[in-house]
């Protein structure tokens, strides 16, 4: 009997801390169950650099620079279902704390006035992505199909969400799995 076609999943972290990816790995031995149904495209696990055609894209982190937008648009173009995973992707999160401070003042603090700095210089290599003056959640840039809040979403929420989605059900979180912190 031919093996059923696996669901192809891509993941990435934009302006995030990879904490949501760590929470994803926290589903532990259920990863083996998951691998029976899915295969991975671009993720930090496979080290594939660009997202190809996929069924599901899981995005961690908000949008803080031009590169984030390119990656996000590549995911949106290639993923049938795009999911904002975690507080940063859903609200901007911790990186959006800088939204109340002018970008130049942020750079000055980090590169000019930081403790132990002398003759500081703000990096301006053309290879560095252009930072935005504010950090935004991903749904303010592309259409997002689902949001999975939490900092990070607990492993139980990620598992519930993925198993619902893979089974063709509308994902629904239990009260204790829906958290913003």
């Amino acid at each position: 009997m031919a093996e059923a076609k696996k669901v192809r999943i891509a993941t990435c972290s934009l302006a995030g801390c990879f904490g949501c990816h760590m929470s994803f790995l926290d589903i532990d031995e259920k990863l083996f169950d998951l691998l029976a149904w899915v295969e991975f495209d671009r993720t930090p696990l496979t080290d594939i650099k660009h997202c190809g055609p996929c069924d599901v894209g899981l995005i961690e982190g908000g949008v803080c620079n031009a590169e984030n937008v390119h990656v996000l648009k590549e995911f949106r173009k290639n993923c049938k279902v795009l999911v904002a995973v975690g507080a940063c992707a859903v609200t901007g999160g911790i990186p959006a704390m800088r939204n109340s401070v002018e970008l130049r003042a942020c750079f000055d603090e980090v590169y000019h006035y930081g403790v132990g700095l002398k003759n500081g210089m703000i990096p301006n290599d053309p290879e560095l992505p252009l930072p935005f003056d504010k950090v935004h959640p991903i749904y303010e840039v592309v259409k997002v199909d689902y949001c999975l809040p939490g900092c990070p979403p607990p492993a139980s929420a990620i598992w519930q969400f993925l198993t619902d989605l893979l089974a063709g059900r509308e994902p629904k979180l239990a009260y204790e799995s829906l958290h913003y912190d």
Binding site: A84, V90, T91, G92, A96, N99, S100, K134, H136, P137, Y139, E140, V144, Y146, C147, L148, P149, L173, Y175, L178, H179, Y180
Partner: peptide
């Protein structure tokens, strides 16, 4: 937000000062 099953703030953020 939890009670009303709010999964995202949906609207564009103001990020006010």
């Amino acid at each position: 937000g939890y009670f009303l099953e709010m999964l995202s703030p949906h609207y564009n953020h103001f990020y006010p000062q």
